[in-house]
Design a protein around this nucleic acid. Sequence first.
DNA 1: AGCGTCATGTAACCGGTTACATGATTTA
DNA 2: TAAATCATGTAACCGGTTACATGACGCT
Lengths: 181, 181
Amino acid sequence: MTKYNDTTYAILGILTTECKSGYAIKQLIDRSLNHFWKISYGQIYPTLKLISQEGLAEIRTSSSNGRPEKNEYYLTEKGLDVLKNWLEQPIEHFPAERNEVLLKLFFGHYQSYERQVLLLQKYKEALEIRYQTYITIEQAIQQDTSKDSMYWLITLDYGKRTTHAAIEWCDCTLGKLKKEE
Amino acid sequence: MTKYNDTTYAILGILTTECKSGYAIKQLIDRSLNHFWKISYGQIYPTLKLISQEGLAEIRTSSSNGRPEKNEYYLTEKGLDVLKNWLEQPIEHFPAERNEVLLKLFFGHYQSYERQVLLLQKYKEALEIRYQTYITIEQAIQQDTSKDSMYWLITLDYGKRTTHAAIEWCDCTLGKLKKEE
DNA sequence: AGCGTCATGTAACCGGTTACATGATTTA
DNA sequence: TAAATCATGTAACCGGTTACATGACGCT
């Protein structure tokens, strides 16, 4: 079976929901997958083109009530097969993030104590904001009991847990630096 | 001040240590920064070329005892300034990892319960291996009391904490899935 | 003789972002 | 009437990996 990149599979997955157009896909990702998957129009539209060329989806153009023309992509049987097959494959890329904060801290000798503290405090702030947005999204999902929200909540939980661990690391590291000074 | 990419700054930082050649830089990164920074020769050598062209380092070629020729890059004053300036700048890219596991889980409806469990178990295994390597590296560093190992340990601690949180998420999620079935 | 390691480098490719172009409709 | 939103798309660019090419030395 032909191999595509993860972005293609992500879009195939989204096409199983009500989101069928490039614009709608972008919205869904920004709102629901944003904490572990991002994408730009510069990739969505070319990928949709590829998907239809490969016969994984067919386009139906809808231009209701004078609205701007919308291209809606409906998964074909082949498209669904490709998606399901990918889901069954073992994971290829285990996340291994680049972390600019750790990189700067690693060369901490060349910085003053104050600068190091500032770096960590800013990082902690950013992490706390992130954590709060997770909570907010979580609450919004929990109120909407209709849809099968479990998978949404599970991915959010991942974000919450790892972010919380990072925040604790900040506190702990600030303590260590203080002791050294 | 001219802006470079993070890879360039990472290399400038490493050039402050005993590692002065492309080969040595690669080794250091693979051994010490591997958990938050990776790099390939395809980037190291062109970047070193850039660094010397920009006057941030000067090359001294050493070919001792018949060994293959080695190009050693020594930071100039300008190079050190550029590095220090970057260290003082606020962080630009907060890590936002793409996570293939979460993506697959997000489309979990199209998979059997068994497949989902397998996915999580494999992920957990990989995380546990990672955690163990952190511990091993940590112990190796702690035995070598000579160098200023604190920053090494701090970055390792970050890896340990976030990995541990992810492992706990795996366990918890496996429980949730079981309850649903 | 063959493998591992030291050592440097490039070209092709890929995945992704940014900036730009276009234009209609809705809302304030 | 101005701004926001809906909607699609492309070209230039950037950061990075992979695969390849080359060659010397040291160990088994």
